[in-house]
């Protein structure tokens, strides 16, 4: 099967699933309209979801994603307690600034997920990305690295833990 067709099929199934979850499927008209709209969406925007052939088996990638997801939830809980600590502390212990990290990920979807995870994990928020040089600008609420111009040190502290897991999922 060609990649475009497969991508459209995946989009069709996903949008139909969202429709059936939102409506309660009492009569055939809702089902019919839902299928029609899913078809329309998959024909218009379907080819953008999957663009390259994956080499790894799907099951291995799902396993890697589960590993990433558990790590992400743990980091997120830590992030929330971190923010709660800062906000409740009478002196507001912050040392903010914008730093730069590098990423080795090549695909847009992988970079999006990486940036979203950076935003939701302790003390960091993605501000902008430089797609030519693969550099991400990150606002850090409490800078812990001593030399904040050192890209490698920042990368090791902020994004390395997710990058390794995401490489397994997307490459």
């Amino acid at each position: 099967m060609k990649i475009k067709t497969r991508s459209r099929l995946v989009v069709f199934i996903l949008s139909a699933f969202v429709w059936f979850a939102l409506t309660n499927m009492k009569n055939w008209q809702e089902v019919f309209v839902g299928l029609l709209l899913s078809l329309l969406v998959s024909l218009i925007a379907g080819q953008f979801l999957i663009t390259t052939e994956k080499t790894k088996h799907l099951f291995l990638r799902i396993l890697a994603f589960a590993k990433y997801f558990l790590r992400f939830i743990w980091e997120m809980i830590k992030a929330n307690f971190h923010v709660a600590y800062i906000v409740l502390h009478p002196d507001l212990p912050i040392k903010p600034g914008i730093v730069k990290v590098k990423t080795k990920l090549t695909k847009d979807s992988a970079k999006t997920i990486l940036c979203n995870s950076i935003t939701l994990t302790p003390g960091t928020m993605t501000v902008d990305i430089n797609p030519d040089k693969n550099e991400i600008y990150i606002h850090w609420i409490d800078i812990v690295t001593k030399d904040y111009y050192n890209i490698d040190e920042n990368t090791a502290t902020i994004s390395a833990k997710f990058e390794k897991l995401l490489t397994e999922v997307f490459e």
Partner: peptide, 12 residues
Amino acid sequence: KLTGESIVDIYA
């Protein structure tokens, strides 16, 4: 601008 307490702004 970032707040006065900020120590670095590599983006700018």
